[in-house]
Design a protein around this nucleic acid. Structure first.
Length: 303
DNA sequence: AAATCCCTCAACCGCGTCTTT
DNA sequence: AAAAGACGCGGTTGAGGGATT
């Protein structure tokens, strides 16, 4: 498939944005809203690539951007989410109101990554007080200023970013002798249960399909045989409102559209559709799948 | 005070996916 | 079904500036 460059590079400003450019872009978005970024430079009179405008808006000009240091709580959450999701910065940022993926990515590369990497390395030490709280630098580090290419200490599978469009959970031959109720009894948060508690479910239920391994959330993701974005979509699902219907094979199909902007279960957005196939005898009861609202305090603690 | 080091983060780049035609 | 357009994501770069020598 042929592909044009996102925009002509000729005659465009590059590098840091000026206050005037910011003002123009802000005003434009205030009037016209977000989106149609490709046409923004032309319509707003900015000598910038549409992509650049989008980035500037998302990472800097948006009114709900939270500036300032990442708190300890936020840092802890980032670490846990990163362990779960890997370098899926946008997903992680989605759980940190006011923070952008770029900001979290930078913070990880400059702070947490080193900390995690050097967790067992006594050569790492605290940065001077003028640096961000909790920063660590390698005591013997020299040479390249570039962030580490890989975060060695994070137990994460590097994946391609692909979008989950459909997930099918159906009973295979191996399930016929198993206790289906246990499978159905997966509460949403169990799907992203920290490794320390995953083992509990392995003990109590036949999760052979998922090949859960204790103390290895990455393997959990890998072996779950579905796109990891499913986790994020799952987090945003409201199961209490899911329409249920049966297919001609007697399975109950639960569909959910994952568009955050359109919370209504009847929306037609197609980009992120999650489908669960559940055997006839295992139709859900409301109590089995509770709505997954934005993470609550206790959930944050749990993560 | 000047030179150098090197850390931070805004911005750029390329690519994958989705949407539209 | 295929092509083109648009958007979003993650990796990388490099200017700026604070810290150190």
């Amino acid at each position: 498939m042929g592909r044009n460059p996102c925009c002509s590079k000729e005659g465009l400003n590059r590098g840091a944005w000026t206050a005037m450019e910011d003002k123009i872009l802000k005003e434009y978005v205030r009037i016209h809203g977000e989106g149609k970024w490709r046409s923004v430079p032309k319509r707003a009179g900015l000598k910038r690539c549409g992509k650049s405008c989008r980035l500037r808006w998302l990472n800097y000009l948006r009114p709900d951007i939270k500036r300032g240091n990442i708190s300890n709580d936020e840092e802890e959450l980032i670490i846990r989410l990163h362990k779960l999701l890997g370098n899926r910065w946008s997903l992680i940022a989605g759980r940190l109101p006011g923070r952008t993926d770029n900001e979290i990515k930078n913070y990880w590369n400059t702070n947490i990554g080193k900390k995690v990497q050097g967790h067992s390395d006594p050569t790492f030490k605290r940065r001077p007080s003028n640096q961000a709280q909790g920063n660590l630098i390698p005591a013997k580090e020299s040479g390249s200023a570039a962030p580490p290419k890989a975060i060695m200490g994070s137990d994460v599978i590097r994946t391609k970013a692909t979008r989950c469009t459909k997930v099918v959970l159906t009973s295979g031959p191996q399930d016929q002798s198993g206790d289906h109720d246990h499978q159905l009894d997966i509460k949403l948060h169990d799907l992203i249960e920290p490794s320390s508690t995953l083992g509990d479910h392995v003990d109590s239920a036949d999760f052979s399909k998922f090949k859960l391994e204790e103390n290895n959330s990455s393997n959990f993701l890998e072996d779950f045989e579905m796109d990891e974005n499913f986790l994020s979509d799952f987090l945003d699902m409201d199961f209490s409102q899911l329409p249920c219907f049966e297919n001609n094979e007697g399975d109950t199909i639960i569909t959910n559209t994952g568009d955050k902007d359109q919370p209504s279960p009847t929306c037609n957005h197609q980009s992120t559709t999650t489908t669960l196939l559940v055997p006839e005898e295992e139709k859900m009861h409301g109590s089995d799948f509770q709505p997954m609202a934005p993470l609550t305090e206790s959930e944050l603690d749990w993560i």
